[in-house]
Nucleic acid binder design. Structure first.
Length: 316
DNA sequence: CATCAGGGCCCTG
DNA sequence: CAGGGCCCTGAT
């Protein structure tokens, strides 16, 4: 599908702002729906039922956003899209208070110096993130990539914009008439059931992302856990990446356990309580603090530093 | 070749 | 609340 219309908007995030560390997270594994180069990200987006191509460009101190579409977008459409982009990438997040707290910790201070102005955030809607969360479960990174690719190439739509061809996520309800076996044939395994059920719950309107954003943490958590296929590990990701709770840090999965031990104390495996004690120092910003340490590790790897203990764990 | 665990979760007893 | 089963894949 050719996206011939384009409109440019500009966004000025709160300073300091780091374009690359905000628009590219080296540990995010999704493929075929975006391309990143230094200072530029091309990303597809299914917004209000329209399939869009978005090009983000570093235009320091701001961001140039070009929206590619089939139909000429209305003013209201562009406004809501702009607000959504600001929300998803946390462009209005004021990091000052966090930085003041973090400077007391040597490790975190180093990470912040390297990534200053980086926002947490994620390009996906709640619906899309749930699909991602489910294919992460009980699988290595390589296998998760394969599952995502298979889904996107079978059910996504190819969009051509700005000389790039990328796949865009399907509409909610896509799996209403698809039986489980068809998904299983894409090597999704038992996760097929969860994907179909969640798709169904969304299309029946049983869950609404925008309503849920306005609820309190407890309600959000309860609502998410009630979705079929969502448990403590997935909800932990969702509350941070999609609902932007910087303070929630209750769950450490086995592989993260190993990596945090290395990352915080350069030890092979420490008791979870010891790791939690370190993390708890950062109070209402504890997950954000971990995000900075975590992303620093991935950026260092991206830039050529080799951590053998990391390579052993990721197996891409 | 077989066996096993992996960036969990649901269901059963 | 513990533990079995689940899909597939690469490691051993």
């Amino acid at each position: 599908m050719q996206l011939n219309k384009s409109k440019t908007i500009s966004i000025r995030p709160i300073s300091p702002f780091n374009f690359d560390a905000t628009f590219f997270k080296p540990d995010h594994f999704t493929t075929d729906d975006h391309i990143y180069e230094k200072g530029v990200r091309w990303q597809t987006m299914n917004w209000e039922g329209q399939m869009l191509g978005i090009k983000y460009e570093d235009a320091s101190p701001g961001i140039k956003v070009t929206v590619f579409s089939i139909q000429e977008p209305t003013f209201e459409f562009i406004e809501s899209l702009k607000n959504e982009i600001i929300y998803r990438y946390n462009l209005n997040l004021d990091l000052d208070e966090f930085y003041k707290l973090a400077i007391k910790d040597k490790l975190l201070d180093i990470a912040i110096n390297e990534l200053i102005g980086m926002r947490p955030g994620h390009p996906s809607s709640l619906y899309e993130y749930l699909i991602i969360g489910i294919i992460l479960q009980n699988a290595s990174v390589r296998r998760s990539i394969q599952m995502f690719r298979n889904l996107l190439s079978n059910y996504g739509t190819e969009l051509e914009f700005d000389g790039k061809k990328l796949l865009c996520l399907w509409d909610i309800g896509r799996f209403s008439k698809i039986d489980e076996q068809e998904l299983r044939d894409l090597k999704i395994g038992y996760r097929a059931k969860s994907i179909i059920k969640i798709d169904q719950q969304f299309s029946q309107g049983l869950i609404n992302e925008f309503e849920l954003r306005g609820k309190d943490l407890i309600t959000q958590k309860k609502t998410l856990l009630a979705l079929y296929g969502v448990g403590p590990a997935t909800v932990w990701y969702l509350l941070f990446d999609v609902f932007h709770h910087w303070e929630v840090f209750e769950h450490i999965s086995p592989w993260e356990h190993k990596l945090y031990s290395r990352l915080f104390f350069n030890k092979e495996l420490l008791p979870v309580e010891k790791l939690m004690k370190y993390i708890n120092k950062f109070g209402k910003y504890k997950h954000l603090a971990v995000h900075y340490l975590w992303e620093k590790m991935w950026w260092d790897r991206h830039n050529g530093t080799t951590f053998d203990w990391l390579e052993k764990e990721i197996r891409i």
